[in-house]
Design a protein around this nucleic acid. Structure first.
Lengths: 208, 208
DNA sequence: ATCGAAGGATTGTTGAACAATCGCTAAATT
DNA sequence: AATTTAGCGATTGTTCAACAATCCTTCGAT
């Protein structure tokens, strides 16, 4: 039974992920409390949760705002991803963990066949989540989950075209094959190149 | 102007770091509110902050308890450290960042000369913080800070002897030298060995 | 001894209140 | 006219008091 504060946080997370709440938007305690039919205090607890995930930033005495990533933040996020994902993949991982990676790749193929852009995006996230899971660390998994949630925030502004995603799809397949072939170092190289390309694209789309 | 909730969180963090509050101990909202002269609601917000840092765990409807690391958690924490620290040191880092590593090493020497065990411990933490800072990522820095805070929690139970720390001291010096010599890969090897040794020791001290 | 039913304590949540602070507007000063 | 100042309104930060929900324990019944 999740607490009310958790449900509020979930609802807000959803709205953030779906782009209902755009970066920079202000979240007023009272209106959210009314909208969701909860107390202001409960909203406050939810805010604390979201703030700890960097999805939202608190300006003391001014309110909380949907986090918006600056150019520097994009590089920072990709630095984290390079460090974590590349290390995780270098370790190889258990057969089950590798199977999960494969599963994410297939999920992407299905979405691509169905022309489901939304599904392609989530499949891609599942792929990277599975990559990190190779390390078998609970803490790394949650760290990665937070980074991915943070990235979803500006994916909306950057709404990349379908070709972009299908490019990812092919790359993921290659990485997965290298992994399955027992060549984690090669997989790591491919992943690294992928991340560099992705960051470049993001920086480009995100302006200046 | 830190908010009251922040100050409460700071105070609790302090007590956690100093071992006033031992792992597994229960934190009752009302008593803490009284002790610190704040509202129960404010204590609640502080708890949310600490929980997000894993210093404390919430058992729904039961209360919050000082986090206590199980054997599995120790391995997990060291996995995170291996991934982040080794990657960070492999990148080499800017001269200023390397200088910060050197500074932490010297800090340790001073503490050792003064027979200051406490100081030796914090110098060691500064060293690893500086290692991660080589990557130049704000996010990685805060992640590392949290991991170190988490580790401080069970350092008390494990109160390692002075010889243990002085062994660290020598290792840190070697790593630093390798870094300064422009051999980050060798530094990474040393660091990795260090972390493995450290984990082993921790697991040993922590029982079973 | 086992099981189950009160009882007490603590958390989860609400609602209302008030001080502190911020941003804005309009008046006042130069 | 431009800039400073003063005041106003709105929102946050914090407290307090209450109550429902939940858990742990104790006590009693079988």
């Amino acid at each position: 039974m999740p607490s009310v504060a958790d449900r509020v946080a979930d609802e807000l997370r959803l709205q953030l992920a779906e782009g209902v709440l755009l970066p920079g938007a202000r979240l007023t305690e009272s209106t959210i409390a009314e909208d969701l039919g909860v107390s202001r205090n409960t909203v406050r607890e939810a805010f604390a949760e979201l703030a700890s995930e960097r999805l939202v930033v608190r300006h003391p005495n001014r309110g909380v705002f949907v986090a918006s990533l600056e150019a520097g933040d994009i590089h920072d996020v990709y630095t984290v991803r390079r460090v974590i994902e590349v290390s995780a993949i270098r370790g190889g991982g258990t057969p089950e963990a590798v199977a999960a990676v494969r599963e994410a790749v297939e999920e992407g193929k299905v979405a691509a066949a169905a022309n489901d852009d939304e599904g392609l995006g989530t499949a891609n996230q599942h792929f990277h989540k599975a990559i990190v899971a190779l390390a078998g660390s609970r803490r790394l998994n949650t760290i990665m989950a937070q980074v991915l949630a943070e990235m979803r925030l500006f994916f909306h502004k950057a709404t990349m075209d379908a070709h972009f995603y299908s490019g990812y799809l092919k790359g993921n397949e290659e990485i997965c094959v290298a992994l399955e072939a027992g060549e984690p170092d090669r997989a790591a190289e491919l992943l690294l190149a992928y991340l560099d390309r992705s960051e470049e694209k993001q920086a480009e789309v995100h302006g200046e």
